[in-house]
Amino acid sequence: MNRSTSSPTTEPRWLRRLLIGAALAFIAFFLLLPLAAVFVEALRHGLDAYLNALREPDALAALKLTLLVAGIAVPLNLVFGVSAAWLISKHDFRGKALLVTLIDLPFSVSPVVSGLVYVLVFGAQGWFGPWLIEHDIRIIFAVPGLVLATVFVTFPFVARELIPLMQEQGRDDELAALTLGASGFQTFLRVTLPNIRFGLLYGVLLCNARAIGEFGAVSVVSGHIRGLTNTLPLHVEILYNEYDFVSAFAVATLLAMLALLTLGLKALLEWRHGHQLAARARH
């Protein structure tokens, strides 16, 4: 008999191969091809052109600004994330479910709207616009606006990673520390923080990637002033719209490499410390 009995819980080999092939083709076409395009387009006119594009003062200014904005926004969200996760995982109170939902709210708002809300509050025609102009304080079309918009779009990242992790870990460790005489602050620093350090790192990693790459929200509040309020993603757009494709893609490779680095670190964290992360967070 040449009919092989197939396992009851899997598909025949030919079907398995077909499905794997289809999935891989889909991923190659939709994920790998665009990634490859970034690097190929950037090097279209050779390595020198590529490196020259990266040495442009405007590109360097954009890089600095991007790091500055992320450097402010990420710590702010880190503090909030830890605070919210402590509140939600270690305490019982009414309205907890509502609070969790509200923390996630920025994920369901268009990035453009995330920028718009700050224009409405701080813009020239906004609530505080006249007062700000009077006192010569610039928020919109300036660095504070970029930071605010970035904080908004990356708001839930750290909290979302920590809340399920700290809920899984329970409260016994903290209570044990308290019975042993530790103060609240000692308990957090010496017991909770070591327990969540990898989850925290994971959340910060994702938060940082989004903070650096954010485009829509930042675009609305930036004003696109070259060398002043242009982050890297915005600089890519300007170069592209000026038909300076090589430069646009050259700057884009920086962002793409950062994305790959993020994915690598993320995979490393999942591999080495998977048990100390919340059951695979979705973002």
């Binding site: 665009p34 954010e214 893609f249």
Partner: peptide
């Protein structure tokens, strides 16, 4: 495992980069 890690590329890659890459393609 590598493919699995790559699935998150759209989360990590700035949207503007994806935009110009797809346009070029």
């Amino acid at each position: 495992r590598m493919i699995d890690g790559l699935i998150d590329l759209p989360f990590a890659l700035p949207t503007a980069v994806a935009g110009i890459a797809l346009t070029a393609l």
